[in-house]
Design a protein around this nucleic acid. Structure first.
Length: 484
RNA sequence: GGUGAAGUGGCCGAGUGGCUAGGCAGAGGUCUGCAAAACCUCGUACAGCGGUUCGAAUCCGCUCUUCACCUCCA
């Protein structure tokens, strides 16, 4: 009947059937944000995408253990022995403690993700909270000869690990060395070697004692240490943004597999970037779209819907026109859902199962949310056709609502809360509003019955001016709040 | 230079050997007192040039263009 889950594995560059290491349980690690600024649209694309990944796996019956870190050690602006800690820099600019920066932006991040309907990970470990684990991993690598000390820093010896660069395809050491910038001033044996632990320079605030003196962990270390701590030496899925394939993820593979001798990750998943006018959006470029600002113009769920209308592995080009188009479609789906809820039971029918299967197939095919959404649109069209005839039978109505609740709601998270949709809000003021609206619509109905269209149109127009839209249907007039 | 990805109708955006993607915008129609909403109909798109094939947007080659990564970044 229905297909089973396949995932595009960045490591093999093919779609593979998903078979977790331990049947029925999926371990998932996704690179979290570095908390030194507010979240932007790029974060939204990544975490909304993986939110659907997790939600879908849970829907198909897997028990998912989802870990997403918070990077609160601000790594350097480059991998050489220069540059400033990003969080420390922000702290200096804001004249506050580095940890205050991290806490502030961590809260900000979750605020934004909550509004986007992104479910919280099961475990959200911080880098600063796992310094001992990171030190232990470095010690293990030093003991096994995969790492060495030089000038107070500990580096991973890339030549000690066969297959370094297998994820990014960057295995040509000659090419890796061609940059040459690092080689000039570093103690590294090989320019590709990367820092596991760095000695704290004078003035460096975020530092910890270690067997090698006061210092701080290298950029790539925390993910390996925390993923293995909470999910085991071999994890099922590791996700993150494409730009982290190299060097970050290749380094994670090297240091983890060198330490354990076991495969680190079974399925690598990488989401594509958000672009603005065709150019990548990034923190270092000035073109990033701050989510809090975007939420002033568009509902968070519209942003989520916009993101899911393209595939996670495709780049998403941001433009106001594109989001507005999504908004129209989004509202159309909410309206259809509302119509189904409110429709009387009668003779109309719809074959829900066929749509259900198509959506399931789409999501099983590497989480193809755009296709799933297109099927929901087809479903809505079929439903509206049936509803235009006046009713739905009990089975069709129940099935249709279940489809919406399951796929649009539980899995994709693009369905408004039913109460919000139906009444605007619940509670006494809403009931009062309903009563008042009923009176107005009754007056308008009487005016229309006596062909006093001047009055009936005036009621409609005045309401519309205040954002309340009146629609005449076969069952009488209905109203809804319309956004500006 | 190296490593990857991609170029689809007005816009966004799936698909990937033959069978309608979908959304938005636009045109016509049904319904309506008029609207709105909904529904129906309408676009013969796949960068270019060759090749493979009965058949290619989909495979192969070349060309052009774009983007990402190779320094922090979801």
């Amino acid at each position: 009947m229905s297909s089973s889950l396949t995932i595009y594995n960045s490591l093999s560059r093919t779609k593979e059937p998903f078979e977790p290491l331990h049947p029925g349980i999926a371990t998932v690690y996704v690179c979290g944000p570095t908390v030194y600024g507010h979240a932007h649209l790029g974060h939204a694309k990544s975490y909304v995408s993986f939110d659907v990944v997790v939600r879908w796996m849970r829907h198909v019956g897997l028990k998912v253990k989802y870990v997403q870190n918070i990077t609160d050690v601000g790594h350097l602006t480059d991998d050489a022995d220069e540059g400033e800690d990003k969080i420390q820099k922000q702290a200096r600019q804001e004249r506050i403690e580095p940890m205050e920066v991290a806490q502030f932006y961590t809260r900000s991040f979750y605020e934004d993700m909550d509004r986007l309907g992104v479910e919280r990970p099961n475990i959200a470990p911080t880098a600063t909270g796992h310094i001992p684990e990171q030190i232990a991993l470095v010690e293990r690598l030093v003991e096994t000869g995969h790492a060495y000390e030089a000038g107070g820093n500990i580096y991973f010896d890339v030549n000690s690990f066969a297959g370094y660069g297998k994820l990014s395809g960057r295995t040509d050491q000659e090419a890796l060395q061609s940059g040459g910038r690092v080689a000039d001033r570093s103690d590294k044996r090989n320019p590709s070697d990367f820092a596991l632990w760095k000695k704290a320079e004078p003035g460096h605030i975020m530092k910890w004692p270690s067997p090698w003196g006061e210092g701080y962990p290298g950029w790539h270390l925390e993910c390996s240490a925390m993923a293995m701590k909470y999910l085991g030496d071999t994890i099922d899925i590791h996700g993150g943004g494409m730009e982290n394939k190299f060097p970050h993820h290749d380094c994670e593979i090297a240091q983890s597999e060198a330490a354990t001798g076991k495969p680190f990750v079974r399925y690598w998943m990488h989401n594509n970037m958000v672009t603005v006018d065709g150019v990548k959006m990034g923190k270092s470029l000035k073109n990033f779209i701050n989510l809090k600002e975007l939420f002033n113009t568009f509902e968070p769920l519209v942003i989520r819907f916009f993101i899911l209308q393209s595939h996670y592995r495709s780049p998403l080009d941001f433009s106001e026109a594109a989001i507005k188009a999504s908004q129209s479609g989004f509202e159309k789906l909410q309206e259809t859902y509302k119509r189904v809820v409110e429709t009387p039971e009668g003779g109309g029918q719809i074959d829900v199962a066929a749509f259900d299967e198509k959506i399931t197939d789409a999501l099983n095919d590497d989480f193809n949310t755009p296709v799933a959404i297109s099927v929901i649109f087809e479903f809505a069209k079929a439903l509206n056709g049936a509803l235009d005839k006046g009713s739905l039978d009990a089975k069709s109505k129940t099935g249709a609502l279940a489809l919406f609740d399951t796929f649009a709601g539980k899995v994709l998270g693009i369905l408004k809360n039913r109460n919000e949709l139906l009444a605007g809000q619940s509670g006494q003021s809403a009931r009062t509003l309903d009563d008042v609206m009923a009176v107005l619509l009754e007056l308008r109905k009487e005016a229309r019955a006596s062909k006093d269209f001047a009055t009936s149109d005036k009621i409609r127009d005045l309401l519309l001016q205040r954002g309340i839209e009146v629609k005449d249907t076969k069952e009488g007039a209905t109203w809804s709040r319309k956004k500006a």
